[in-house]
């Protein structure tokens, strides 16, 4: 009866099975936006227009979404195509697509919405040449906001998918 609720081992259970939790996650969720392929462009050679465009596209690793919308913005299509071609050209490269939502709506729905956003980009990358095995998808829902606050300026920064190098 009453007694049983007092029988805890206080504080003893902090992360027992959890060996990997403290290891760095390759900058996951911490806003590491620059994962550009640092090919030694400064090696003296002249870059073509196309190479410059590709490098600039690969530097964009965060893609923002409208409220309650899972499709990425049409303006991001070209940039994502460069990411897809980069993956196709570098079969050993592995990335993670991290989907996020703003805090409006329930947490479980936002977890699902973050995955739907990331899957939209996943499919587009595959259609444009990336291999499924190169890409891991994870949704954080509203659990890892890029910016806190209850205003649209924060919300719009939180509705995003991040490409993170693995």
């Amino acid at each position: 009866m009453f007694v049983s609720l007092l029988a805890f081992t206080a504080c003893s259970s902090t992360g027992d099975t959890d060996e990997g939790a403290d290891t760095a996650q390759n900058g996951s969720g911490s806003g590491s936006t620059n994962t550009a392929t640092s090919s030694p462009a400064s090696g003296g050679g002249q870059l073509t227009q196309e190479e410059i465009r590709a490098q600039s596209a690969l530097r964009q690793t965060v893609f923002y979404f409208e409220f309650d919308i899972a499709e990425f913005k049409p303006a991001d299509r070209d940039t994502l195509a460069y990411h897809a071609r980069d993956l196709a050209a570098n079969p050993n490269k592995r990335i993670r697509l991290e989907g996020h939502a703003d805090e409006r709506g329930t947490r479980e729905y936002n977890l699902a919405l973050g995955e739907r956003r990331a899957n939209g980009i996943l499919n587009y990358l595959i259609v444009n040449g990336a291999a499924r095995s190169q890409i891991e998808v994870v949704s954080y829902g509203e659990e890892r906001p890029a910016q806190s606050g209850q205003m649209e300026s924060a919300y719009s920064r939180n509705r995003r998918v991040e490409i993170v190098a693995r």
Partner: peptide, 13 residues
């Protein structure tokens, strides 16, 4: 209040 689990990664539900 007692802490049952602490993590650098999200905990939910």
């Amino acid at each position: 209040a007692q802490v049952l689990l602490e993590s650098n990664e999200p905990i939910m539900s």
